[in-house]
């Protein structure tokens, strides 16, 4: 009890240990926030009006009107659902060879580079921008939407598939190779069993994403429920818009639950 212990303790800073750097960084963040918030121009009278509209929208959400625009909604839904499914199937079919080609441990360097660049282009362009161009080229309607979603699916699935193949257990592949198997046999016996469950999971996940995206690309004319929604909001028909949004939420939930069920069932 003779030793005196300190009566003060401060938690040592975890991320930036140097005090000057820390304060500088904090000032920088503060300055950015001030500038950023300052650059937001708000028309408060417009916002006040908006709150009234927001209330009307909330009411529309609570009392959705499914009937008065039902034919439009039905047409939009059919387009969305069909393009979701076809785009996912085509997207997966194309992504498998590209995914294998983009795996460093399977493909020779030139093939690897080509496939990786296809993946990079597909991933960095957003669906809506692709849709703008495809609509300009192929005309309005769900066919352009189908192409958009297929193209976007390729980047998504091929990338994750390739990463998966690169991460597989090398010793298993080696064991198969040691038996004198050809490249095709190698893919079939060593790679496929390891990545197949994951591929199915990815496809179902992409199905989910494609449906959500199909509700958006209609805004630029690529068909689907998005076009119907856009029209409803433009006409300030909030009860119809609320109905469409509720349908979208319901379908997303159904797709999400059934795909997680399917994934469990298949494994």
């Amino acid at each position: 009890m003779t030793t005196a212990y300190p009566r003060r303790w401060r938690r040592p800073p975890q991320i930036v240990p140097d005090r000057r750097w820390r304060i500088g960084l904090q000032l920088l963040i503060l300055a950015y926030l001030v500038l950023a918030v300052g650059s937001v121009e708000v028309d408060w009278t417009r916002v006040a009006e908006g709150l009234v509209r927001g209330q009307r929208f909330a009411m529309g959400f609570l009392q959705p009107d499914f009937t008065s625009r039902w034919t439009d909604i039905r047409q939009g839904l059919i387009e969305s659902l069909t393009m979701t499914l076809t785009a996912t199937v085509v997207g997966v079919l194309i992504s498998v060879p590209i995914g294998i080609g983009a795996a460093r441990n399977l493909a020779p360097p030139p093939v690897y580079l080509v496939c990786r660049s296809i993946v990079a282009v597909s991933r960095s362009l957003q669906e809506i921008i692709i849709a703008i161009f495809l609509v300009a080229m192929f005309g309005f309607g769900p066919f352009a939407g189908f192409l958009t979603l297929s193209f976007a699916s390729i980047g998504f699935i091929a990338k994750l598939l390739a990463d998966d193949i690169e991460e597989i257990d090398a010793s298993q592949a080696e064991a198969i190779r040691a038996t004198g198997a050809s490249w095709w046999q190698l893919v079939h016996y060593a790679i496929q069993p390891q990545v197949m469950p994951r591929l199915i999971g990815l496809s179902l996940y992409r199905l989910d994403i494609n449906f959500r995206e199909s509700s958006v690309i209609g805004i630029v004319g690529a068909g689907g429920i998005g076009a119907t929604l856009n029209t409803a909001i433009d006409r300030y028909e909030y009860d119809s818009a609320g109905a469409i949004l509720l349908i979208i939420i319901a379908i997303v939930m159904v797709v999400e639950y059934s795909s997680s069920y399917l994934r469990k069932f298949l494994q």
Binding site: T3, Y5, P6, R7, R8, W9, R10, R11
Partner: peptide
Amino acid sequence: TRRFPGQDIERAYRLLD
């Protein structure tokens, strides 16, 4: 805020010792 009373910190140091 991690600002414990002085005697708590003193006790904690003593226990760690």
